[in-house]
Amino acid sequence: MKVANEVLAFYTKKVLIFAISMFFAAGLIFFVISLTPGNIADIHGLSPTTAASLHLDKNIFSRFLLWTYNAFTLNFGPSLANGTQVTELIFDYAPTTIQLAIGSLVFSLLLSVPLAIVFALYPHNKWARLSSTLVYALSSLPVFVVAFIILALIFNLLHIYPLDPPTENAPFWHILFYQFLPMIVLGVGNGTLGEFVRLLQLEIENTNQALYIKSARARGAFLFPHFFRPVLLSFITILVSRFAILLGGVIVVERIFNRRGLGWLTWESTLNRDFFVLMGVAFLTVLVIRIFILAQEIIIYQLDPRRR
């Protein structure tokens, strides 16, 4: 019973923190938007009836409560630029971004695990050192510089122009590049790949120094099962912690490659000062990230016996 109580306490605490921090996040978003000088209705030239229907005439606290209440039911109001509901807009544009984000994460993780293993196993090898410098250097660049490097290489070496959508008879490479180039660029740039490789490598090296690995070696045991669990745990931690930064790079990637996704929507609505869309996208993004963080904490709690 005691163990069950502890588990219950843990989960309750986590869910409570989740709810309260979402409330604070909504508060931050709303507070920043409310710093707009002037009246939202006046900026967009809305008629008084429209403004009243959007509750723009009420005072700030009731507006905040109304917005937060609606936000938790995923109703963010209409887009001030073209009138469609923000939720509809987001669901229209989300698939591209989800595909991009997941694809880039998968690519980055698939590439980083072998790289981390090689860099950890062969620290003195000349080629390993050279490629690790290259990986860290390339990865710490902003996304658009990485995009330009890769595009320049493809352009100069292969004479291919992969930025257009492929037509009916497009060759195989065109389709391939068109689909995967944004994911590759997003997975490499802004420090994503470099952080993954560095943290995984650090985890492998730290585990290697531990006494239980030494004693496993002395027993003649296979080392891979011993490394699996700690590396997996740090894997999950890094994944979740880089996800927020990944979503920041999505905006630039969608602009470079001319995709219409949530990043493009965010940029457009910032230009048009479309507040509701921006608030909706921000709230949803924070919600998704906090869900991921919650999932990570639960998984680590279940998988790591030391926490219990």
């Binding site: 239980y212 030494k214 004693s215 002395a218 027993r219 011993h226 700690p230 790591d304 016996p305």
Partner: peptide
């Protein structure tokens, strides 16, 4: 040592709790 370690030649270490894999 491959044929010996774990069969004919074994060892125990100083900190027994750290010498065991904490995840197993």
């Amino acid at each position: 040592l491959k044929s010996h370690l774990g069969h004919t030649l074994t060892s125990i270490f100083q900190e027994p709790k750290s010498a065991l894999n904490p995840f197993w």
